[in-house]
Amino acid sequence: MRNMKNYQIDPRYKVSNREALIGIGLAIINFVWWYGFAYGLGGQPVEEYQFIFGLPAWFFYSCVLGFLVMSAVVFVVVRLFFTEVPFESEGMEEDQ
């Protein structure tokens, strides 16, 4: 592209692009877990259902455990892989 020689891509975008991809990755894991348990176990005839804490196993794994697992995964991923960057262009401004 012309006239761009003196400029460089905002380095913070490297971080934001990576985190957007992580978000998509999390959503895919979330979907696979949710779908796999729900229709894998829930697709059997009702007479063959197993129960955990009184709930059908498909529901327990897909919705209850799946929700808890996703909360934990988000916690870990955000803590480990999300980087703090300043938002103001001039660098981190003091918050008064």
Binding site: V15, A27, F31
Partner: peptide
């Protein structure tokens, strides 16, 4: 559940910056 993390991670920093 996905809305809890997806919106912020996708729009997240890029939108804020």
């Amino acid at each position: 559940v996905v809305t809890g993390y997806f919106t912020l991670s996708v729009l997240g920093k890029k939108f804020a910056i």
